[in-house]
Design a protein around this nucleic acid. Structure first.
Lengths: 197, 197
DNA sequence: GTAAATTGATATCGAGTCGATACTATCTCA
DNA sequence: TGAGATAGTATCGACTCGATATCAATTTAC
């Protein structure tokens, strides 16, 4: 079946439109555009090395100028907070405000997805995650921009002790929950191999 | 792993952004927006019951007014053709012009995807397609809009002879290639079951 | 140690999206 | 035949998004 990869692309395309349409619906209730919700969703996941306008622009594939505008609007609506970085004073750091977090929580944005995947077996989900993750890492490589991913699959991540983790790239200690966050300098471990799971 | 469905959503989200970003790049070269390319890609797949502005609006999750504007622009650029339906004179039918087809062909839009999935085994792809298709059909159901899919998985489709197929819904004969096109009145066969493949 | 280049962010402008609303034309069906 | 439904278009305003320019802070080169 040479065509199956394209079938898959067609399914992803349709899924993307449905999820986007759902975001439009949810956003409409609060006067937000899709891109604003996407920014908030990103900030809810990003680790402390990746919570900047630049990283968000790379994640969304938009220019920093464009993203800057969206962030201004989110700030005006008190959904995010902006603060200066302690070391490099050019850098603005972003985080969801408590209102922003509450807004995401109440929105029910993920409900549709959650209920629709409820009956997939853990095994099927693992297979899908594994295959799509490989594809994602490959696409990120070929596209040449930033690579986003979580520590679990990153070559820079190491375990120092039972509850202490470490990032060799930034040279900093990481808590277990930080290790599950999204990072902009992710380098996939054992790239493109079907591997263990 | 209760979180795996959300991991999957995160991967889809990032994939969607990358593909969208690629469309922006390609579209920029021709002065087109992402939504214009999406419309053309849809028209390249849609069957003869689904090539209308209304169906496109449902596929994209946009209002018909919005879609109407995009179609005007595509028409001005001679990328699509519009013609009246023979039976119902309210209905406008759409198709890619030869320039439109050529444009899609040359754009290399699917190259990134193709090369990135090249090393996935047929088996893995089948599993992913099956799981995501189930999820897609479920989401379409719960979202309550139109359901898009191809004849292969549709309850209205039947085989009349070796090379003759038939749609019970529209009561019309279908060629084998038409049976692979996208339809707006798709009803999934044996819904949500892991099933044969 | 200073000038040049780089990097992170913001401001402005114009084409275009997008939803809301209103409107026309056609079809359905009672 | 007339009321309501359906397919599509037109208009308006808020907003996106890329291009470009600008500014400030940091890094690099010499």
């Amino acid at each position: 079946m040479l065509k199956d990869p394209l079938t898959l692309l067609g399914i992803l395309d349709r899924l993307a439109n449905l999820l986007r349409s759902d975001m439009r619906r949810v956003g409409g209730e609060s006067g937000l555009q899709v891109v604003h919700l996407q920014a908030m969703i990103y900030l809810a996941q990003a680790n402390r090395f990746s919570n900047t306008p630049q990283a968000l622009a790379e994640y969304l594939g938009l220019t920093k100028g464009t993203v800057s505008q969206s962030l201004l609007l989110l700030d005006r609506n008190n959904l995010i907070e902006r603060y200066q970085d302690g070391e490099d004073r050019r850098i603005v750091r972003l985080r969801l405000s408590s209102e922003g977090e509450e807004m995401l929580r109440v929105s029910g944005l993920h409900e549709l997805w959650r209920s629709s995947t409820r009956d997939l077996s853990a095994n099927r989900i693992r297979t899908v995650v594994s295959a799509l993750r490989d594809t994602l890492f490959r696409i990120q490589d070929e596209a040449g921009g930033s690579n986003f991913g979580t520590c679990e699959t990153c070559i820079h991540w190491s375990r120092r002790s039972a509850r202490a983790y470490h990032c060799e790239w930034y040279g900093e200690r990481l808590s277990i929950s930080e290790s599950r966050e999204l990072c902009r300098t992710h380098v996939p471990r054992s790239t493109y191999l079907p591997e263990d799971r």
